[in-house]
C-alpha cells in the first residue's frame, strides 16, 4: 500500500514538473491566452474593425516568441505581455513572452539577433541594449541586426534632487555642480541610458559629476529618499509617484516638448539647455524578415496599439502610448543611437 502511495507521490512530482517544467514557455503561453479571454468583451469591437487583408504568405501558422530582455514583472516585461496579448488576438495565434534577462538587456538582444528571421521571434528592444551596450562593450549585434516593427513607449529622463537641495532649476544646478566638483549622481545601473544622458549633460554644461551606479530605479529612489544620494537620473515613469508626493523635486526633463508623464517639470530645452534624449521601447524582429511577413506584423502591431485593451492596460501601468510607425520608429531609434554614440565617443576620447 505504502509503495503505491509513494509511486503516486512520485507521479505527482513528475506531473507538477511537467506543468511547471517549461515555466518560461508553457506558463507564459497559458497566460498569454488566458488574459485576453478576460478582456474578450472589450476587444471584440477591435476585432470587428479588422481590415480585410490578403496576405501573400500564410503567417502565422505557429506560436510566436517575444523575447523581453529584462526580468519578469519589470516595465519592459509588462509592455511585452500587454502587446503580446493584443497582437496574439489580432493574428489569432499565441504569442509567448520569454524573459531573457542579464547584462543590461544585452543577453536577450544577443539571443534575439541570432534567431532565424522568420517572423516567429520578436524582440522588445530598449535604448539601453540597442543604443548603449554595442558601443560600450563588445557584443555580437547592433541596431542593424533588427527590423523595426514599431515603437511602444518613449520615456524621457528626469533629473531629481532631494527637497533641501540648493538648486531649483538647471542653471542653479550647474552652478552648484561647478562649485562642488565631483557631485555624486545615481542611475539605475552602469551603461544605462540614464548614465549616458547624464554624460550628455556634463559635456553640454561643462561640469564634472561622479557616477554612482545602483541596482535599479527602486534603489535610486530609496537612496535619494534616505538622504544617501544628492542627485538622481531616472525615467519619467519611475519618478511620477514620488514627485506627486513631494518626496523629492525635479529640476528638468529631457523631452523635447512638455512631457506627457511629468507635465509639471520644465524641459532642459526650455531652461536654455539644448539637450534632448529619450529611452525608447520598440518592438523589433531579427533583421531579414520576409517583407510580406513584416507587413503583417506591422499592421497587427498598429492595430494592437490602437486597441482599447492596450490603451487601458498602458494607462493602468502609467505607460504613455508612444506608438510610431515602423519608419518613424526606426528614424527615432537611429537618432537616439547616434546621439548616444557621440556622447560615448566623447567620453572615451
Amino acid at each position: 500500500m505504502k509503495k503505491y502511495l509513494a509511486l503516486v507521490l512520485a507521479l505527482v512530482m513528475v506531473l507538477s514538473l511537467a506543468a511547471c517544467g517549461g515555466s518560461g514557455n508553457k506558463e507564459n503561453a497559458s497566460t498569454a491566452t488566458e488574459a485576453p479571454k478576460q478582456d474578450e468583451a472589450e476587444k471584440s469591437d477591435a476585432e470587428e474593425e479588422k481590415p480585410a487583408e490578403e496576405p501573400k504568405v500564410d503567417f502565422p501558422t505557429k506560436a510566436i516568441t517575444l523575447i523581453s530582455p529584462y526580468t519578469a514583472g519589470g516595465s519592459n516585461d509588462m509592455t511585452s505581455r500587454i502587446i503580446a496579448d493584443a497582437m496574439g488576438d489580432i493574428l489569432d495565434c499565441t504569442i509567448t513572452v520569454l524573459n531573457v534577462p542579464g547584462a543590461g538587456g544585452s543577453v536577450g538582444a544577443v539571443q534575439a539577433a541570432a534567431e532565424k528571421p522568420d517572423g516567429y521571434t520578436l524582440f522588445m528592444s530598449a535604448a539601453g541594449c540597442i543604443s548603449v551596450v554595442p558601443y560600450t562593450s563588445t557584443v555580437s549585434y547592433d541596431i542593424d541586426s533588427f527590423d523595426v516593427i514599431g515603437q511602444a513607449t518613449d520615456l524621457a529622463f528626469v533629473l531629481v534632487v532631494p527637497n533641501d537641495f540648493p538648486a531649483d532649476n538647471i542653471d542653479e544646478f550647474v552652478e552648484y555642480a561647478k562649485e562642488n566638483p565631483g557631485l555624486n549622481y545615481g542611475t539605475p545601473g552602469a551603461n544605462s541610458s540614464q548614465e549616458i544622458f547624464m554624460h550628455q549633460l556634463e559635456q553640454y554644461a561643462d561640469i564634472e559629476l561622479t557616477h554612482v551606479p545602483y541596482g535599479g530605479a527602486a534603489d535610486v529612489n530609496a537612496a535619494i529618499m534616505g538622504g544617501h544620494l544628492e542627485v538622481g537620473c531616472l525615467l519619467s515613469t519611475d519618478t511620477v509617484a514620488n514627485l506627486a508626493d513631494g518626496q523629492y523635486k525635479a529640476l528638468g526633463v529631457s523631452s523635447a516638448e512638455q512631457d506627457e508623464v511629468v507635465p509639471d517639470v520644465a524641459t532642459f530645452v526650455s531652461q536654455g539647455y539644448d539637450i534632448t534624449s529619450t529611452c525608447f521601447t520598440t518592438l523589433v524582429a531579427p533583421a531579414g524578415v520576409d517583407p510580406a511577413v513584416l507587413t503583417i506584423l506591422r499592421d497587427a502591431y498598429t492595430e494592437a496599439m490602437a486597441s482599447d485593451y492596450v490603451n487601458e492596460s498602458f494607462e493602468k501601468m502609467g505607460f504613455p502610448n508612444c506608438y510610431m510607425s515602423a519608419e518613424e520608429s526606426e528614424a527615432h531609434m537611429r537618432e537616439v543611437t547616434e546621439s548616444f554614440k557621440n556622447v560615448i565617443a566623447a567620453l572615451n576620447s
Partner: peptide, 26 residues
C-alpha cells in the same frame, strides 16, 4: 514607500499598478 523589500515584492509592485494603484508614499 513604493520600494520593494525583496525580489518578490518588486514584482508585486507591478501587480499593484495593474490594479490601478500607484505605489508610493501616499
Amino acid at each position: 514607500l513604493g520600494i520593494p523589500g525583496d525580489p518578490c515584492t518588486a514584482i508585486l509592485l507591478s501587480a499593484l499598478m495593474i490594479q490601478g494603484l500607484t505605489p508610493g508614499p501616499t
